[in-house]
Design a protein around this nucleic acid. Sequence first.
DNA 1: CCTATTTAGTTGCTTTTGTCAACCATAATC
DNA 2: GATTATGGTTGACAAAAGCAACTAAATAGG
Lengths: 152, 152
Amino acid sequence: MNDDIVLKIRRFNRFYLPVMNLYESSYLHSDYSMTESRVLYELYRRKECAADDIIRELRIDKGYMSRIIKRFEKEELLERERSKTDARSYKIRLTEKGKHMTKELTDKANQGIREAIRHVPKEEYVRLAEAMETIERILAAVPEDAQAGVRQ
Amino acid sequence: MNDDIVLKIRRFNRFYLPVMNLYESSYLHSDYSMTESRVLYELYRRKECAADDIIRELRIDKGYMSRIIKRFEKEELLERERSKTDARSYKIRLTEKGKHMTKELTDKANQGIREAIRHVPKEEYVRLAEAMETIERILAAVPEDAQAGVRQ
DNA sequence: CCTATTTAGTTGCTTTTGTCAACCATAATC
DNA sequence: GATTATGGTTGACAAAAGCAACTAAATAGG
């Protein structure tokens, strides 16, 4: 029983990995990597934040993040200014150009999914959405310490 | 409506990506990468096949695959012999050592998931499994040509 | 307040992971 | 029998990420 659910989760993971790769692959054909796209999305969503917020949210290396920010800034997708309350950190946010870019990227990704599911009968949409919501609800946010448990 | 499901799928993808990363992360702490682990699993499952079967199944570069095989062979996880029906290709299969290794890896991954879901109430297991099965059923195998549609 | 520690971010270096193109040998097609 | 396609190998390279040492600022403890 306990094992059963584990096997089903792993089966699902094997199934869903290529699906996700396909569904999110429009990024791979854009000028931005998956991680960069995720960062863009976070920036888009948050309006304004510190690099560290995103580092923790996406669990990426701070050196790596630093370079992503540098690139975005160079491309004028992002601007930053020193935080008034903490001089070590910066407030970062997308420029208008950055927002526009992100929106385009998102639209393209959405279009890709629309293509990919065109063979799915519309009657199934509700069930599919429900199933996804169920998984999200049950698995909820991954608890912080679950990470530590797995890390060797 | 059409857009609605697209947004929900993408939302789910954002949610599930870190979950999957976590759930499959035991591989990252083994001596094998995610891709190598997937290859091992395919080899385990298929008993005997050609490299090309796995290349197509997992959609990985043949050069990359060639090196993965070379590594596995060197570590005596895998053995191969020329195909009798096609002298260009090889029959490849796991050795006993390879099977054993793969099983250990799998067990470890399962254990990792067991840890990760320990906070999920058991009553939810059935619903979770159902939801996953529903998604698998509806999305079924990604049709070949959906790939072409998204590729650039 | 002064010292020790922690934290945000940067930089250089390295490794891991993967792609690309040219190539060889064999097989399939015409 | 010539041409083309296929399975696999190799070398060169690029992308993605991780690691560790560092700076500067903030915070905690005495």
